[in-house]
Write a protein that binds this DNA or RNA. Structure first.
Lengths: 211, 211
DNA sequence: GGCAATACTGTACCGGCGGTACAGTTATTA
DNA sequence: TAATAACTGTACCGCCGGTACAGTATTGCC
C-alpha cells in the first residue's frame, strides 16, 4: 500500500543525492546536504532509506535502469532509421554524441565512476551492481557490433568485447575530460572519434560520408 | 636547512595517502588512516602539511611530476629505438601498454580522476593543477602526433588535439574498467585498441605488422 | 660536543556527522 | 471514517576528523 506522494519524494531524494554526490563524492555528501536539497527532514529520509549505505544501493540500481533505458532508446531509434547494421551503430553513436551535446551544461558525471573511486566505502552489493552495470553496457554495444560483423566483415580480426568496452572507456574518460576542461564538447568529440574508428574498421578508409 | 629524514617521511606520507585515497576517496580517507600506514603521529603529519587541503595540493603536484616523467621516459625510449615518427608513437603506445601489463596488480587508479569526482572538496589551486595535468598530457601526445603528420599525411582530416585527448580518455576510462572488472588487462587491451586506431589512420589498413 | 633548527610526540579539545528514538501530525487510500 | 502511510520535529549519543600546542627527540653544522 504505497502512495504516489511517497514514491515521488523518494525519487526526489534520489535525484538530489545523485547530483550532490557527483559533485562532492559519496563520503563528503552528508545526509543534511541531501535534506536541504530534497526539502525533507531527517526522519523523512530515514523513513525511506535505512541509512546511507542503502541510499547508495538504491542510487546505483536507479542509475543502472535509467542508463540502460537511454542506450536502448538510442539504439532503437537508430534501428528505425536505417536497415544496415553498421549504419545503425554509426547512427547510434551520432545520436549519443548529440544527446551529450544537447545537455544544458557539462555532463554531470557517471555514478559508476564516482563509486569506483570510493569503492572501499561500498558494500559488496553495490560493487556487484557496478560490475553488472558495466557488463550491461558491454553487452548492449556488443550486440550491435555482432550484427555489424554479420554483414560487414572487418578488414582485420578484432575483439568485439574490446570494441564495446572501448566505448564505455571513451565515455567514462570523456566525462572526466569534460569536467576537467569544463567543456561538454570534449565528450562529444571523443565519441565521434570512436565512431570514426568504427567506420575505419568496418567501412574501410572510404569517403568521409554517411555522417 | 632540511633533513633527509624529514623529506623521506614526508614522501612516505604522500605515498601512503595516495594509495589509500585511490581506494577510499579523498573525503573518506581519515588522517588517522594515513598515520597508521605512514607510522607517524598526528602532530608529525601536521608538521609537514597544514591540513588535508594542503596534502591534496602536494599529492597532485607530485602526481603531475611523476606522470610526466613516466610519459616522457617512454617517449624517449621509443625515439631511441626507431626513426620514423609514426613507429615511434606506435612503439610508445606499446611500451605504455606493457608498463600497465607489468603492474603487479590492477592499476591503482588516477588521482586526477579521483579528485575530479570530488572536485567540490578541492580548492581552486588543486583544480588548476588538475587541469594543468590534463593539458600536459595533451601536449605530450600532441607533440608526438605532430611529428607523425609531418611524415605521414593521414588519409583524412583529423584533429590532433582530439586524438591526443582520446588517449587520455582511453587511459582514464580503461583504469575505471580495470578496477570494476578487477582485470589489469582491460586497460592494456584498450590502449592497444587506441593504437590500432592510430595505425589505421596513418598507416592505412595495411598488414597487421609492426607491432 | 654543543647548539640551533628541524622534526617530531602526546595529549587535549571541539564541532559535526551518522545514526537512533520516538511522540506527534498530516496525507492517502480502502 | 478508520487504518495505514508518510512524514515532521526534537532531542540525543558516540565517534571521529580536524586543530592546537606544549614538550621532546633528532639532525646538521661549526
Amino acid at each position: 500500500m504505497k502512495t504516489q506522494r511517497g514514491e515521488d519524494r523518494r525519487e526526489k531524494i534520489l535525484q538530489v543525492s545523485e547530483a550532490i554526490i557527483l559533485q562532492k563524492g559519496f563520503s563528503a555528501t552528508s545526509i543534511d546536504d541531501i535534506l536541504d536539497g530534497a526539502h525533507i527532514t531527517k526522519g523523512g529520509f530515514f523513513y525511506h532509506f535505512a541509512g546511507k549505505g542503502e541510499l547508495a544501493r538504491a542510487l546505483v540500481e536507479r542509475y543502472l535502469e535509467e542508463d540502460a533505458k537511454l542506450f536502448d532508446g538510442l539504439a532503437a531509434r537508430a534501428a528505425e532509421l536505417t536497415e544496415d547494421p553498421l549504419q545503425q551503430y554509426l547512427l547510434f553513436l551520432n545520436l549519443l554524441a548529440e544527446t551529450m551535446e544537447n545537455l544544458e551544461d557539462v555532463h554531470p558525471g557517471c555514478l559508476v565512476a564516482s563509486f569506483t573511486y570510493e569503492s572501499q566505502q561500498m558494500d559488496d552489493t553495490v560493487k556487484a551492481l557496478i560490475a553488472e552495470s558495466m557488463l550491461r553496457w558491454r553487452q548492449s554495444f556488443r550486440d550491435q557490433l555482432e550484427r555489424v560483423t554479420a554483414h560487414h566483415p572487418a578488414g582485420e580480426e578484432i575483439s568485439l568485447d574490446e570494441l564495446a568496452d572501448m566505448l564505455s572507456a571513451v565515455i567514462e574518460g570523456g566525462i572526466i575530460l569534460s569536467r576537467v576542461f569544463r567543456d561538454k564538447m570534449a565528450l562529444v568529440r571523443l565519441i565521434r572519434q570512436y565512431r570514426n574508428y568504427i567506420r575505419l574498421l568496418f567501412a574501410g578508409a572510404g569517403p568521409w560520408d554517411a555522417r
